[in-house]
């Protein structure tokens, strides 16, 4: 049994400490907005926030989270930057197939948390680990800039 702070609520999960957070979110709590992509922290689809910073939940074990606050795509819209990012995403219709986009939004929000007015190089450095096979990168870049101005 491991207790986690997820989207502002305390959740107890009946799983061993070496269970990946992604499994706990999707299979135990039904929070399926966070996606499984590669399973080896190379695609970014599983990105969530731990204390406001982007982490790959596929390789983060629930035993190592402790009391740190986890935020997922389901609740990131309740944060100021998360709301701005989601609106910017809808305004210019960033999404194509959408599979990677919850991860993209989590990474973009974490970027704005750290760097409120990112330049192209900041966006590259923060977003390079989030892959999009539809190639929505140019719209992602634009939406991040729009969100920063909002």
């Amino acid at each position: 049994m491991v207790t986690l702070q997820i989207n502002g609520q305390s959740q107890t999960i009946d799983a061993t400490p070496d269970t990946p957070l992604l499994w706990a979110l999707r299979d135990f709590l039904g929070l399926t907005g966070t996606k499984f992509g590669c399973g080896i922290a190379q695609c970014g689809a599983c990105t969530v926030h731990m204390d406001g910073k982007a982490v790959r939940s596929c390789l983060l074990t629930i035993g190592s989270v402790g009391n740190r606050a986890i935020t997922t795509i389901e609740a990131v819209g309740n944060t100021p930057n998360g709301a701005k990012v989601q609106k910017a995403w809808l305004d210019i219709e960033v999404v194509q197939c959408g599979y990677c986009q919850s991860g993209q939004i989590m990474s973009a929000t974490a970027l704005l948390n750290k760097t409120p007015h990112p330049q192209d190089a900041d966006i590259d450095a923060a977003m390079a680990g989030n892959l999009c096979r539809c190639g929505t990168y140019t719209r992602i870049r634009q939406a991040i800039k729009n969100a920063a101005k909002a």
Partner: peptide, 18 residues
């Protein structure tokens, strides 16, 4: 490094994962 490494190791070298 940005694409393949930073998400776990962080730019600081002290990532949050483990």
């Amino acid at each position: 490094f940005a694409g393949a490494c930073a998400s776990c190791h962080d730019w600081t070298g002290k990532g949050q994962l483990t």
